Structures are given as C-alpha cells and as structure tokens.
Computed example of a mutant assay.
Amino acid sequence: MAEQQGRRVIPFPGLKDRLVERGLDMLQNQENVEAISLLEQALEIDENDVAAGTSLAVAYYENNQWSESADLCRRMLQEGSGEYDELVELYVMNLIQLRRFDEISSFIQPLLEENEIQPEKAARLKSLIDLGKQQKEIKESEDESFHSFQLQKDLEQQMIQAAALAKQNIRPVKDDIITEIEKDETHPFVKTLLLNILREQGIADETVVCKWNKEISVSPSELMEPFDQELYQKAAALLSNESDQPQLAEIAAELLQKHAFLLYPFSWRIDSAEIISKAYLKLASEYMGEEEAFTGFDHKELLEEIRRLEKVEMV
C-alpha cells in the first residue's frame, strides 16, 4: 500500500493539452472561474507549460485575482518562460490594480538599464512607468480631497452621496460614515446604504445601529448582504412559488424587498416566513384596491410593523 501511494500518478495522454484548450475556450467566453480551474489542473501536470501559465495569469487578472496573477507573472519572468513583453505588461497591470505603484519603477528601471534592450521595447517600458506614475498621482489626489464626509439635508442628495461612496475607498472617512449611521435622524434607508458600503469594503469597526426602536452593535464586515438573510430568502421563495396570483405575488415580492432593506440589519419581529409572505400578499391586495385585505389577519404585531415601514417617506 505504501509503495502504491508513493507512485506518481501518470495523466492520460494529451490530458494537459485538452485542459489548456478547454481553459482557453472558457477564458474567451469570460467564464473565468471555470477557466482557472482547468488551467490550474494543466499546470499541476506540467508546471513549466508556457501556454497554461500565461493563460492562467490572464484568467486570474480577468477574475480580479491580481495578487495571484502578479505572482505567476513574476515567477515566469524569473524563469524566462513565456512571452516576455506580454508578461511584463500583464505584471504591471496587476501592480496598478493592487495600487503598488512604487514597485512598477523598481521593477522596470533595471530592465531599461540593459544595454541590449530594443528601442521599441524600451519605449513601451517607459510608457508603463509613466502609466504607474499617473495612477499614483490620481490615487494621492483622491486621498487628499476625500478627507471628510457629511450627509446633506436632502434625502435624494444623500442617496446620490451614498452611491458615490460605493465607488471609492472609504477608509479615509469611515469614522464619519459610522457617525452618520449612528445619528437618530439619519433616514433608515440611508443607514442601510451606508452600512452595506462598510460591509462591502470590509470595515470591521464597531457600529451602533438604531432603527425601529431597536439597537445593535455590529461589525459591518461580518454582516450578511441585506437580501441574504434567511428569513427574507424563505419568504421571497414562497412568493416566487405563488402561481395562482403571479401579478399579486410580484407586487408582494417588491414590497417585501423594500421593507427588508429598510429593516437591515434587523429583520421582522415575527420569525415565520409563511406568515410574512401571507402578510405581503395581503398588502399587495390592498395596493390593488382591496380595502379589507387584512380582515381576519391575527398577527397584529407584524401588521403594525408593516404599516410603520409603509409610512417611511422615500424619494
């Protein structure tokens, strides 16, 4: 048994080439995760395969795995394998995405000092250094100008502000954002927007959220996405299976989603997806003109909660 375990597994003839070919097809179809899996298998069979290595580095880059792509490019350049110019450019593009701008010059400058480098290649390397410098200046400018945050008074403007934050590195102003979340007067919808941005950018700072006469201290980075919460998922699934009244179910699902976002990071006070889905079907019926939709509905606490959520003014 020990002897069998020590034997090297011999792959089927041509397996590596088929994995590379299939991986390239996946990469061209922008199925990056599948491409990575296939190309990693090919590289395990032959770690020196140039096509597998280069294609995997590209797949990593396309899948936003810039560290993995940069490491692979660096290794191949050190080993002298692969298309040199292509790997250099891909390596620099990874450094830009990683915002490691200083490394670009320190990597390229020694290459420029080689006496035998071709003029056109030298020009391209210099342009990559310039690109790195430009990106560094942009980042520094952003960091200098983005040093404070305060919500405007108009709700519509607040939502625009929150949308803009989602596209920036919020770490310079994370304390200001937390302050806005913790204010009683901040709109519950805006609180959710800001809290979700903290979550998406991995901010772990303690944040006290007060909503709907509830208070909780959370670490945003540890929160679920608003619509990944189990109770919402179950209620939404029940509504999606409501085949008898599809139009009514669609309206109910939209209302359920809106309220889930307003409640976040809290959920409904009643822990029953069946009762919640029925309540939103009744609310949808009310929207469609049925005045007595909630007649006989016994869950007064949930009804009061829904009414309170419906009274929230939106833009």
Results as ranks from 00 to 15, higher is better:
residue 47 E to D: 10
residue 199 R to V: 07
residue 161 Q to S: 07
residue 153 K to N: 15
residue 166 A to T: 13
residue 81 S to A: 12
residue 258 K to Q: 06
residue 16 K to F: 07
residue 211 K to E: 09
residue 215 E to P: 00
residue 98 L to H: 04
residue 230 E to Q: 13
residue 115 N to A: 14
residue 205 D to M: 04
residue 98 L to E: 03
residue 62 E to M: 08
residue 2 A to L: 11
residue 88 V to C: 15
residue 116 E to N: 13
residue 218 V to G: 07
residue 76 M to F: 15
residue 307 R to C: 03
residue 245 Q to A: 13
residue 24 L to K: 07
residue 245 Q to P: 00
residue 169 N to L: 05
residue 264 Y to D: 02
residue 261 F to C: 01
residue 4 Q to S: 06
residue 108 I to D: 02
residue 12 F to V: 07
residue 253 A to M: 05
residue 294 F to M: 05
residue 27 L to M: 08
residue 148 S to P: 01
residue 313 E to N: 03
residue 297 F to T: 03
residue 234 K to N: 11
residue 9 V to N: 04
residue 75 R to Y: 08
residue 173 V to H: 10
residue 187 H to Y: 05
residue 311 K to N: 12
residue 12 F to Y: 12
residue 76 M to C: 11
residue 287 Y to I: 07
residue 146 F to E: 00
residue 252 A to W: 10
residue 21 E to V: 12
residue 268 W to S: 02
residue 152 Q to T: 06
residue 231 L to T: 09
residue 9 V to A: 12
residue 91 Y to S: 01
residue 261 F to A: 02
residue 111 L to T: 11
residue 40 E to R: 13
residue 234 K to D: 14
residue 261 F to K: 01
residue 52 A to I: 02
residue 296 G to A: 10
residue 101 F to T: 01
residue 210 C to R: 12
residue 184 D to E: 14
residue 212 W to D: 11
residue 194 L to E: 01
residue 242 E to M: 06
residue 201 Q to E: 06
residue 123 A to W: 03
residue 193 L to Y: 10
residue 149 F to M: 02
residue 257 Q to H: 11
residue 204 A to S: 12
residue 2 A to F: 05
residue 295 T to P: 00
residue 45 I to N: 09
residue 136 K to D: 14
residue 74 R to T: 15
residue 275 I to N: 05
residue 62 E to A: 12
residue 243 S to K: 11
residue 170 I to R: 05
residue 38 L to T: 04
residue 142 E to F: 15
residue 188 P to D: 01
residue 111 L to A: 12
residue 272 S to I: 01
residue 113 E to N: 12
residue 203 I to K: 02
residue 19 L to Q: 08
residue 119 P to D: 14
residue 182 E to Y: 04
residue 137 E to K: 11
residue 246 P to N: 10
residue 14 G to Q: 12
residue 150 Q to M: 09
residue 80 G to E: 13
residue 23 G to K: 07
residue 155 L to D: 04
residue 18 R to C: 08
residue 58 V to W: 02
